[in-house]
C-alpha cells in the first residue's frame, strides 16, 4: 500500500491512461478517458452517471487519500463526455478517437 502511495505521489498531476496500451489498440471506441488523479476527490459522479458503465471506483487512492475511479471498459466509451461534464474537479476528460472504418 505504501509503495503504491509513493508511486502515485511521484506521478504528480500526470495523466494516467487507465487501460493497458494493447487493449486500446484493439478496441473500436470513440473516446479515450484520461484521469488527472491528483485532482480527483472521489465523488463518484463520473462512475454513477456514465451511460455506458465505462468507469468503476478502484481501491486505489491518490496522494490526498481520495479513492479514484478506474476505466474498466473503455471500448464502451462513446465520447459523450458525461464524466467530463459532471466532474467538479476538472480531473477527468475524454479525447475523441476517430473510429476505425466501419
Amino acid at each position: 500500500m505504501f509503495e503504491e502511495l509513493k508511486r502515485m505521489e511521484s506521478t504528480g498531476m500526470k495523466t494516467e491512461p487507465a487501460v493497458p496500451a494493447q487493449s486500446r489498440a484493439a478496441r473500436r471506441s470513440h473516446g479515450h478517458v484520461f484521469l488527472l488523479a491528483e485532482r480527483c476527490k472521489g465523488c463518484r459522479f463520473c462512475v454513477e452517471f456514465c451511460p455506458r458503465q465505462v468507469l468503476a471506483m478502484s481501491d486505489r487512492f491518490n496522494s490526498k487519500g481520495y479513492h479514484i475511479p478506474i476505466v474498466i471498459a473503455e471500448e464502451r466509451c462513446t465520447d459523450c463526455k458525461m464524466c467530463e461534464l459532471l466532474c467538479p474537479e476538472f480531473a477527468i476528460y475524454v479525447v475523441r478517437i476517430e473510429g476505425e472504418e466501419r
Binding site: 485532482r39 466532474c87 476538472f90
Partner: peptide
C-alpha cells in the same frame, strides 16, 4: 487546482 471545494460539491460543475 485542486480547488478548495469539498468532494462532491457542485460549484466546480
Amino acid at each position: 487546482l485542486p480547488h478548495i471545494w469539498c468532494p462532491g460539491c457542485g460549484i466546480g460543475i
